[in-house]
Design a protein around this nucleic acid. Structure first.
Length: 565
RNA sequence: GCUCCCAUAGCUCAAUGGAUAGAGCAACUCCCUUCUAAGGAGUAGGUUGCAGGUUCAACUCCUGCUGGGAGCGCCA
């Protein structure tokens, strides 16, 4: 528990007949810093004490001894407000950051509890569009958040490299694609074939059946089918890797659905043995009627499997391989039902760890006039967006800071960062309408704003040139702007815990915006470097601490923190 | 038809059941001989979709409704 909270709770415990945990739970942070640092609302006491909350607050505030880290205790209406001694807090917060450095915000709560995170997971033979951004970025950020808290993390890219669509692709390739040189094929070519298949399938009746037949051959191990499939996969992976490199996203494993093909028979057998499945309309299903859900399909009438089957097999395999404490699937909310179904099947199979599987869903990304669709070729390529962002930042650099070194690197870090931050900064379950101007806005609450703030702080530290020391007079850090900033910096570890609890990277974005706002107000109101040596030393420590917090925060989001821009 | 998600300033979004609902963008005003103006200050902008309910207290919880999105057996 936080040192200050602990102190306040123990003070209150002397006067109030409530358990420690309850007091801690009720303790809140006032909306305005002028109301103090912590507040205890007296509403709940009014019933038992049979007095008005205001009177209780007044009496208790009088009775509580003011000592050490507490500077004042004041009753305001029904609240008892606690004011911390500024110097003590400044010392506690800034010394911690100064000592922990890149480790500030880290914890060991996750020690030994492996977390498997399934994210990005695009389909082979299709382009990565802007709508693929969300899973990749949210998943990567959650991965970083959990790592920060000490959880061993395994990031898995569960590639969509299996299913009827590959039958479709093979058909399309054999009909319209084979005259092209095999080796020069790109994802664009595959994508075109895919789009063409769906166009033609509307006119030619037997085409879908033909595709299903090819998928059956693929699942049965047919050589020609497998060679083509492998080729499509190689082409796609190469192109995907390029984008992941641009985004700075790393996976511990690229294991596609196809990998589980050999395991599904065993999985189905066990489901059958447990009496969970039955045949319905020639397909094998698990009836989920008692749980108010549509049935989960395990096998189609042509005997091929479905993704639910492969997901079940994959979950079992991962449990065996990683012995995870928790498994997180970062997949769009349109698949909510699928996950509820397949988690339920895992549970019915007797896997008690099924409740440790979480579907971290997120809202759909769409255009103003509707949904993005790979089939109709209605997408914006992720690569195009990233290139555009980097180019626009490049122009701004030419305009504002033409003498900057490493322009290309900085433009890349800031451009990509802008896209990452824009995507992560709203709560994940909201649908987002893709808007170029919004994603490529670099002013206000944006990634570049946070990075710019960081660069400014680095600039001050460069000018100062002497080593930063924590041996300063903390009582000099006393202005309102300073106090608020220090308070913000001290909240970082709590924010990370909360972001992990709710699987919500946007909390880190909001927090960073808060810190930057506080810093910039401080920056505008007070000079850091001055003739006053003691004051300069003190403010430099504050600047360095803020720089450190911003950097740590950005890194968790998967962004770089350039020192100049 | 059934299920899930969303609704807060003109726009995009915040707000562990608690004090005066806050930011950014857009508009209008100011602040660079001062550590990076990709910044800061200010003005203006609200019946928190509607109607009930629970509570000492509701943007927050419950019910109903309206509007938008998504899903609902052989795609993933």
């Amino acid at each position: 528990m936080d040192y200050f909270i602990k102190n306040i709770v123990s003070l209150l415990k002397e006067k109030i007949d409530l358990p420690e945990d309850e007091i801690k739970r009720l303790l809140e942070i006032p909306p305005d810093f002028k109301m103090g640092d912590y507040a205890f609302p007296c509403y709940s006491l009014s019933k038992t004490l049979k007095k008005s909350p205001n009177a209780i607050a007044g009496e208790l505030a009088q009775a509580i001894p003011v000592d050490k880290p507490i500077e004042a205790v004041r009753a305001v209406g029904p609240y008892i407000n606690f004011f911390l001694d500024k110097a003590t807090r400044a010392k506690t917060v800034l010394k911690t950051i100064f000592e922990e450095r890149d480790g500030y915000g880290h914890a060991d709560v996750g020690k030994g509890k492996t977390v498997v995170i399934d994210f990005s997971s695009p389909n082979i033979a299709k382009h990565l569009g802007v709508h693929h951004l969300r899973s990749a970025l949210i998943g990567n950020a959650i991965c970083n958040i959990y790592k920060t808290l000490g959880y061993p993390c395994v990031g898995i890219n569960h590639l969509g490299d299996w299913g009827t669509q590959f039958g479709q692709l093979i058909v399309a390739y054999k009909k319209w694609g084979s005259e092209n040189a095999h080796a020069s094929y790109t994802v664009a070519d595959l994508n075109n074939l895919y789009v063409r298949f769906h166009q033609e399938a509307e006119k030619i009746p037997g085409l879908e059946d033909e595709a299903r037949a090819w998928f059956k051959k693929l699942e049965a191990g047919d050589t020609e089918a497998n060679e083509l499939w492998q080729h499509f996969k190689d082409i796609s992976l190469k192109e995907f890797q390029k984008i992941y490199d641009m985004l700075g996203i790393h996976f511990d494993a690229f294991v596609g659905e196809s990998f589980y093909n050999t395991m599904v028979e065993d999985t189905i057998t066990r489901i059958k043995e447990k009496g969970l499945s039955r045949v319905s309309e020639q397909a094998l299903i698990v009836d989920l009627e008692p749980y108010k859900m549509p049935p989960c399909l395990l096998r189609k009438k042509d005997d091929t499997t479905l993704y639910a089957t492969r997901d079940i097999a994959a979950a079992e395999y991962r449990k065996k391989t990683y012995d995870f404490d928790r498994m997180i699937y970062v997949v769009g909310s349109e698949q909510k039902l699928h996950f509820n179904q397949f988690f339920k099947v895992l549970e019915l199979m007797g896997h008690d760890w099924a409740r440790r599987c979480v579907h971290v869903d997120f809202g759909l990304m769409k255009f103003k006039d509707g949904k993005m669709s790979t089939r109709k070729g209605k997408v914006i390529l992720l690569e195009d967006l990233l290139i555009e962002a980097v180019e626009r930042i490049g122009k701004i650099i030419e305009e504002k800071n033409p003498s900057l070194e490493n322009k290309e690197t900085v433009a890349r870090d800031v451009g990509i960062g802008a896209v990452i931050f824009a995507d992560l900064s709203t709560k994940r379950n909201k649908d987002v309408v893709f808007d170029w101007d919004e994603v490529l806005n670099f002013e206000g609450e944006t990634g570049p704003y946070v990075q710019y703030t960081h660069a400014r702080l680095c600039s001050i530290l460069r000018k100062y040139w002497k080593p930063v020391t924590a041996d300063i007079r903390f009582e000099l850090l006393k202005e309102d702007e300073t106090t608020i900033l220090i308070k913000n910096l001290g909240q970082f570890p709590q924010i990370i815990l909360k972001a992990a609890e709710f699987y919500e990277p946007s909390l880190i974005c909001n927090y960073l915006i808060d810190v930057c706002g506080s810093l910039n107000r401080f920056y505008n109101a007070h000079r850091v470097l001055s003739d006053d040596e003691e004051l300069t030393k003190a403010r430099i420590l504050l600047v360095d601490a803020t720089r450190q917090v911003i950097k740590n925060g950005l890194n968790i989001l998967g962004m770089q923190a350039p020192e100049q821009m």
